[in-house]
Computed example of a mutant assay.
Amino acid sequence: MSEKAVIEVAELADIIRKPDVVVLDCRYSLVDREAGARAFAEAHIPGAHYASLHRDLSGPVGRYGGRHPLPSAEQFQQFARACGIDRDTRVVVYDDNRLAFAARAWFLFHYFGHANVAVLNGGLTAWCEAGLALDTNPSAPAAPGDFVASARDDLLLDHKQIYSRLDNPPWQLIDARDAQRFAGIEEPLDPIAGHIPTALNKPWQGVTREDGRIKSVNELRNHWQDVPADERLANYCGSGVTACVNLFSLHLIGYTDALLYPGSWSDWCAHIVYPESEST
């Protein structure tokens, strides 16, 4: 398992006070958008800054693009600099929900050209279980960083690319939602139930243990062994968030060219409900 991609709580405790380390708390709730911010205000890893999914890790919502579009390079650069992140900063991200939101932050740093980012294994739960201190005071404002965001659009797919290649796709679509949503049995968030044609279902929770720790490299390889190894893997979920958990796990076992469809099922549904020919 790459030391650059995963960091254990003991390792973070050893380096947390170093000036070239910045920690981001990515806790969030899809049913209460301010729950993560409130939890952060109550207690967080010392020195951490809060990264909100809807304010910092997503861009403005439109007709297309899904519920959580990626932020622009300018928006993400401004956020990262405000957290004191420089071009050579080691960034550590964590949450308390099996990487659901920390993996989104991890992906964004990679997408914007910053490879020196790690996910805290086990998140805040593991930190607390180790008996390590929490901070209940607001984080001190950071000196502005010089982080430069340079988007790598070769890591993304959009609706047009996928739709135009459904008959003969050069990639294998991977749907990270739970089996009930994939099968169209239930759909709590989007107007249409089901999945994108040709997709395989690999629920995002399958790459971590119930305590939030990432599975071993061997376990992850076994988890992905039923997916065609000769095809590039394109990940999606409901809105491009938990798909990043699957993408992160693929990165750990060497699939560094895996793709993300950021708009995901919510964008796919929008194109069905509001066909582009009717929006012009």
Rank of each mutant, 00 (worst) to 15 (best):
G113F: 06
R104V: 03
P191I: 08
P188M: 03
L124G: 11
L12M: 12
A115N: 12
Q172W: 05
H68M: 11
R213P: 09
L247N: 12
V273G: 10
N116P: 04
D135C: 08
L247Q: 07
A118N: 13
F107V: 02
N235T: 12
A35H: 06
R177W: 09
P71E: 03
E129A: 12
V227T: 08
S2A: 11
A37H: 04
E187F: 08
F101C: 04
T242C: 10
V93Y: 07
R17P: 05
A103P: 05
W265K: 01
E11C: 03
L173G: 13
Q172I: 08
A133L: 05
I196E: 08
F107G: 04
I185H: 14
H44S: 00
S150E: 14
V241Y: 15
K4A: 14
S72E: 09
Y64H: 12
D95A: 12
P191R: 08
V23R: 03
P197D: 05
D230Y: 11
Y111E: 04
I214T: 14
G212M: 04
E231L: 14
P191K: 13
N246Q: 04
I253W: 01
D267R: 14
L252E: 06
I7R: 07
D230S: 12
N218E: 15
F40V: 06
Y236F: 13
A176Q: 01
L57A: 06
A234G: 02
A43W: 02
V245L: 02
L259V: 11
A193R: 09
E186V: 15
A179H: 09
L259R: 10
C128N: 15
Y274D: 13
A193Y: 09
P71R: 05
A43M: 08
L53N: 13
L247T: 04
P203T: 06
D135A: 09
F147L: 02
D25G: 00
D211S: 03
V245M: 02
L124W: 10
P46L: 00
D226E: 09
G59Y: 01
R33Q: 15
R55C: 14
S239K: 00
E186M: 12
N246D: 04
R177C: 11
K18Y: 15
P141V: 00
L252F: 01
R87T: 15
I16S: 14
I192H: 00
G66C: 07
P144D: 07
E231I: 10
Y261H: 05
N201I: 02
E34I: 07
H68V: 12
S249K: 09
Q78I: 05
A143M: 08
S29K: 14
G47L: 01
G62H: 02
G113W: 03
L200M: 09
A82P: 09
G145I: 05
A176C: 03
Y163W: 15
P188E: 07
K202C: 14
I214W: 10
Q75L: 05
R213F: 10
L124T: 14
D153Q: 06
